[in-house]
Amino acid sequence: MSTNQSLLPARPIQRETGNIASDMNGEKVLLNVNKGKYFNLGEIGGVIWELLEQPMSIRSIVDQLLSIYAVERATCEQQLLAFLDQLLDEGLIFMHDEVRD
């Protein structure tokens, strides 16, 4: 199901409530209680999921990931946006209305 939303870089994003997360062999697995669906976010997806406990801008997430992983900023940002779009489509994250740095 698509929400027809798209991510706006200036808007902070945060994870939705109603998901049970568990670590399995270094990967993050989620159960969405409302839909009864299970997701595997993988290792890096799990790191991103943990960061989204608080509202964060995409720039802030990229900065955090660059401090942990050996990757170019442009590559990181492009792949992060694609991943976050998937999370948004599944209703696992939401965008805040206000703009933050």
Binding site: K37, N40, F83
Partner: peptide, 16 residues
């Protein structure tokens, strides 16, 4: 030393 980057992907698990 930084960790190796992998493309993050969302995988839907089909568990009944």
């Amino acid at each position: 030393m930084k960790k190796e980057w992998e493309t993050p992907k969302l995988e839907v698990l089909h568990i009944k």
